[in-house]
Amino acid sequence: MSKKSKTITGTLIILVFLIIGFMSFMDSKIEYVNFAEAKERMRTVEVKGQWLKDKDSGFDGSTNTFTFYMKDDFNNEMKVVLDGAKPNNFDVAEAVVAKGKMKDGYFQAKEVLTKCPSKYEADGKEVQQKKGG
């Protein structure tokens, strides 16, 4: 093979790869939205917010789902049904990120990530608390 035809073949392969890559990339992008936007989108999205601890939550063994209420950063409230058990560190999470889709009236989450800086980064109050007991 001549050098020229090698370069052309190489470039073609790389181009095809890039195009396929770009297309599948666009397909698998998961956007970060609020619940209002999630209602408009049919695809999987991520919503960040706070767990509303004073509202009902619980694990249902028969469907293997964990249900809780969540408020996104724009104060939209939503019932979230997670496929699976309550995530580790859920109770101390400063914020939670639910990944999934809107269903009729609730958000069906495939996964819930928890952000727990409060526990990993302590504050001075905690040091003082230990002082007493």
Binding site: F25, S28, I30
Partner: peptide, 14 residues
């Protein structure tokens, strides 16, 4: 670049 993530399916497919 944009808030969000890439689905694991992307890595598997590619």
């Amino acid at each position: 670049f944009q808030k969000g993530t890439i689905d694991a399916a992307f890595y598997n497919k590619m």
